[in-house]
């Protein structure tokens, strides 16, 4: 885990990232001092309540931010085939950024119903990616497109390739999206809640497909999810976000077994865990997330926190409790479960 591996494994490294939204002269620090690394062949799961900045973090890496948003500080270093690149220094829509997007970093989104263009065939939309990132001739592109669809478990790919998205089911569309994302064999796949819009059985199939790809190609995966069950199943590492900050990060075992942040603990208590039977206690987190334009001072979670004390009026720094396990809480000693 973590530092045991060489630095060469790191595909993307985010350092002190701050991405702010500017709206009516007000500033929303949507992502506020976020750091993490993703290694090849590993899955980082980013979890947290709605609005905590998961998608904005992902969009920052892709430079696909809304117009109102700007990367204020920090660095995003991507280890491309050609060497290390500072993504945050690249022009948003310049050639270098476009070559990375879709080619070396691919992204799939939450709602496969909306993320494919309804007026083009699925094949056309996958081929588009190949056209801009490879030098294949159009015959070869078509063959590869069909092959990708087949690999994603879409039956009769040679027929499906010429169909429109509305002729696909939700699960098949998401497979087509993954086929599109994986077509150019990217080093990093960002999946922003890829299965939220799908039902549970299809969810499992989609994740299986992603795991297979990870194993075959050593793709690094950044998986954004609400679902702790998915985290337990798929993650190598976990980052828990709250109001724009990573409040706790580490390997799955560390974060799920020995949560150090009250928020992580509350999050884990708020979801049913498979296999614990019917009588388990499920406690929703009390209160709700604050208005991002009107944030509490100090620790953002303090108003909802059972452990909150005077110290919490100041934002704690990140503290490492092991090589890989970090937490942003004054009271993490108290929170830690008794060993």
């Amino acid at each position: 885990m973590g530092t045991a591996q060489s630095e060469a494994d790191v595909v993307v490294s985010v350092e002190g990232l701050r991405t702010y939204f500017y709206n009516d002269n007000r500033c929303n620090k949507a992502v506020d001092d976020v750091s993490f690394e993703i290694r090849s062949g590993k899955t980082l799961c980013v979890v947290g309540e709605s609005g905590c900045g998961k998608s904005v973090t992902a969009s920052s890496i892709m430079q696909l931010l809304p117009r109102l948003a700007r990367i204020e500080e920090g660095s995003i270093t991507f280890n491309a085939q050609s060497g290390a690149l500072r993504i945050d220094k690249l022009d948003r829509n310049g050639r270098a950024m476009r070559n990375i997007r879709g080619g070396e970093i691919a992204m799939i989104f939450q709602d496969p119903m909306k993320s494919l263009n309804p007026v083009y065939t699925v094949g056309f939309q996958i081929a588009e990616n190949l056209k801009y990132h490879t030098r294949l001739a159009s015959r070869a592109i078509r063959e590869l497109t069909i092959e990708m669809l087949g690999k994603m478990g879409i039956p009769l790919p040679e027929k499906r390739v010429d169909q429109y998205p509305h002729e696909f089911s939700g699960g098949m569309r998401q497979r087509a999206m993954i086929a599109m994302a994986m077509a150019c064999n990217p080093r990093l796949l960002i999946a922003d809640e890829p299965t939220t819009a799908l039902d549970v059985t299809i969810q499992a199939q989609i994740f299986e497909t992603m795991l297979k790809l990870k194993a075959e190609h050593g793709t690094a995966i950044m998986l954004i999810t609400h679902d702790m069950g998915v985290v337990a199943e798929l993650a190598d590492e976990v980052a828990v976000m709250y109001m724009g900050k990573i409040v706790e990060g580490g390997t799955v075992e560390e974060v799920l077994r020995t949560p150090r942040h009250p928020y992580t603990k509350a999050l884990l208590a708020s979801i049913p865990v498979l296999g614990r039977g019917r009588n388990q206690q499920i406690e929703p987190i009390r209160g709700s997330t604050p208005d991002p334009y009107d944030r509490p001072v100090g620790c953002q979670f303090a108003p909802r926190c059972d452990y909150a004390g005077e110290k919490c009026a100041v934002m704690p720094d990140e503290e490492y409790v092991s090589f890989t396990h970090r937490v942003r809480c004054w009271k993490h000693q108290e929170v830690a479960p008794d060993e």
Partner: peptide
Amino acid sequence: SQEFVRTARAKGLPE
């Protein structure tokens, strides 16, 4: 403003 436009950008297509 549709999401497929973001998908198109995410593919690295020129503006």
